[in-house]
Computed example of a mutant assay.
Amino acid sequence: MCKDEKTIKDLIIGRRVGFYKVRGEIGCGTFSRVKLAFHALTKDKVALKVLDKTRLDSQAQRLLSKEISSMECLQHPNVVCLYEVMEKPSRLYLVLEYAGGGDLHNRLSTQGKLSENACKITFAQILSAIKYMHNINVIHRDLKAENVLFTSSGCIKVADFGFSTQVSNRNDALDTFCGSPPYAAPELFRDECYLGASVDVWAMGVLLFFMVTGTMPFRAETMGKLRRCVIECEYTLPPWVPGPCQRLIRGILKEAPADRYAVDQMLGICQSA
């Protein structure tokens, strides 16, 4: 029996016992590997995130704690569900909902921009997930196409809460630079304290631009040039992008956080388009 076919069993937290058959790797990160697994009894597919506890420094431990804490309170049809957490002396296992339809970045990279209708449907589901998260004061902080997954039936699932955090209210200032630079808001590049919801909203504007054009709004050869483009909001919308979508993107990608569309405004525009 090869390593990936071994059964992970007797992983106990209290009286709960996990029993999953691992069938192969579907992703990896700095401190973790994500494997496809099947529950031995129900045969349901899950994504099993395996973390090596011996490699986690104090910062990684804090981020992991926030990730688990955030996911434990999230129950939404467009958010990947955390089913259970299992632990061994040197390993931690997060049993996650398996999407199975690939991610948005891969789809855009291989097939090009989405059709107008597909873009509306996809963006509306992402927006629904973010509205729900912000309503319970969970900030994602790493929204990007790689973290938007499709199920086999085409439903959208927002995933990867490794940089997420919970705030006591939406006006709580944060100070940690998180996420991917091409999706980072101007205030992050200025190394300022920021409001988490505004940073998530900016990233959604970048995502929408990527979906309707097949390209990223902010591109540069160096990090310094990228920083300048983002801070100065230098991007060009192709004229063939539909008018309502242009207005939505321009309303989101505003340099000042207070000038950006709120999530409810974005929902209203999407519903009327």
Rank of each mutant, 00 (worst) to 15 (best):
Y132I: 00
N147W: 09
V212Y: 04
L96K: 06
L174Y: 08
N169G: 05
H76F: 11
Y83H: 13
H105Y: 15
P186W: 11
C155F: 13
Q271N: 14
I68W: 05
A118Y: 08
F177Y: 08
M223W: 06
M1K: 12
R55A: 13
V263K: 04
I269G: 05
T215W: 13
I13R: 10
V263P: 00
G102A: 08
V50L: 15
H39D: 12
C2A: 14
R107N: 07
P181N: 06
G102S: 09
T30V: 09
S152F: 14
D57A: 06
D160F: 08
T42V: 01
A173R: 13
G112I: 08
V167D: 06
R190E: 15
P186K: 09
L63T: 06
Q265P: 02
L92H: 01
E25F: 11
Y194F: 09
S152C: 11
K6Q: 14
I136Y: 06
K113V: 03
C229E: 09
R250H: 12
D103G: 07
L74A: 04
F150D: 00
L267R: 14
S164R: 03
R227K: 14
W202N: 00
Y83A: 03
Y235N: 03
G24H: 09
L143K: 03
S128K: 08
G112M: 10
C233W: 04
I136L: 14
P238T: 07
N137W: 10
M71F: 07
N171W: 12
R219W: 12
R190C: 10
E116S: 11
S32N: 05
C155E: 14
V138C: 06
T54P: 02
F123W: 06
K225C: 07
F218N: 03
V167S: 07
M216D: 01
A37S: 10
L114G: 01
M133G: 01
Y83T: 03
Q265D: 13
L41M: 08
F218S: 02
P257S: 13
V34A: 01
F209Y: 15
C119N: 04
G162I: 00
L36R: 10
W202K: 01
F19Y: 15
E234H: 12
E87P: 00
F177E: 00
R190N: 11
D191F: 15
H140T: 02
G179T: 03
C81T: 13
D142Y: 05
I121S: 10
L56A: 00
L74R: 03
L188E: 01
L207A: 00
E234Q: 13
R247F: 11
L143Q: 04
D191V: 09
L92S: 00
G162D: 02
L143V: 05
I156Y: 07
L108Q: 04
K45T: 10
L108S: 02
N169E: 12
